[in-house]
Amino acid sequence: GEEQGLQGSKFFDYSPLQATMAFVLDGGGEPGEIIIQSPCQNEIEYIAYGKSAHAGINPEDGLNAIHLVSQALAVMPSGRIDEETTCNFGVIEGGTARNIVADVCRVKGECRSLQRTKLDKLTDQLVSTFQDEVAKRGGRAEVQVTFLYPEIQLDEDHPVVQLAIKAAEQAGLQPVLTSTGGGSDASIINGQGIPCVNLGIGMRQVHTTNEYILIDDLVKDAEFVLKIIALATEEA
């Protein structure tokens, strides 16, 4: 899944495949939705190192890494950056006990954008700001950036998009071309040189404990896939 960085599709062996296009069933929209744009993403781990000390006896001898991180995050961009770009800090871990000045604190975050240049620019800003804010307060910073997956940018007239549109219409669905801020196996497959669209399947309340899908939508999904297979066979 996206949370683990799409590891399954990353480690799949694509060398035996002769496919010229692909389709992934992982979109949160209604059946008939065809996702032709999705973001690239960087995973970023930030680490601040301070100095431990007893919190009640000699706190002035310590340097609180949790405090260093909080001051850095306070001036770093977060949330919706623009219509194509987002940033998030999702996990903070630090310290060992309430009476010890924390000497290390880690933050796990991410940034993503539909445009690679915007992703690179935002990543550079996040890294440099964190390093500068920690360093000027006497701490030491480490930042590790991992590129998780590439962006998808497909034109409406691309063969894989046109086939999906035609299949949706034949299945009695209203084709809707759209973009998403989420990643999927389609991102990795496109990165392997196989044009791929992600299809909406009717998932509802995604990423909650109430996530569900209607049986009627499952039937529509199956009919959509059958039309895709039939059309692809005709054009082969």
Rank of each mutant, 00 (worst) to 15 (best):
A53D: 01
V219T: 12
F11M: 13
E33G: 01
L199K: 04
D216P: 02
T123W: 03
A168S: 14
I47T: 14
P159W: 09
Q41N: 10
K10A: 01
F147D: 09
E33R: 08
G172Y: 08
A236C: 11
G95L: 12
Y212S: 14
S70T: 12
A168N: 03
E151W: 03
L226E: 09
D82M: 08
I44K: 04
E84V: 08
H54R: 10
L119C: 05
L119T: 03
Y49M: 14
V107M: 03
T129V: 11
T233R: 11
G8A: 13
A232G: 03
Y46I: 07
Q170T: 09
I66C: 14
E84M: 13
L154M: 07
Q205A: 15
G191W: 05
N198K: 00
E84G: 04
G79M: 07
I36K: 00
I47Y: 03
P150H: 09
D157W: 05
I188Y: 04
D82V: 10
A97H: 10
H207P: 06
P175W: 06
G109M: 02
V197R: 00
Q144D: 12
C87P: 03
I194F: 02
N99L: 10
S15F: 01
S70C: 12
V176K: 12
M76E: 06
I188P: 02
E83V: 14
G29R: 10
L122I: 09
G5L: 06
V176G: 00
R116I: 13
I66Y: 07
Q4K: 10
A230H: 15
D26G: 00
A72R: 02
S15P: 03
F147M: 09
F23E: 00
D82E: 08
L163R: 04
I152M: 06
G193M: 10
Q41R: 12
I81F: 06
C40M: 14
L173Y: 08
S38K: 05
E2L: 09
Q115H: 10
Q41W: 05
G182I: 01
S70A: 15
Y14M: 09
V75R: 11
E235M: 14
L25S: 05
R80K: 14
G50A: 00
E2W: 14
V107A: 01
V219S: 11
E43V: 09
K220T: 02
G29M: 11
N198T: 01
T85H: 05
G90M: 13
G95E: 08
I35A: 01
D82Q: 11
T85V: 08
E211W: 06
L163D: 00
E3C: 04
T208W: 07
E84L: 14
S52Q: 14
G90N: 09
A65N: 07
G56Q: 08
I165Y: 04
I100D: 05
K108Y: 15
T123F: 03
D103K: 11
E43P: 02
A74V: 00
V176D: 01
A65T: 06
H54K: 11
L148D: 04
A167L: 04
N88A: 12
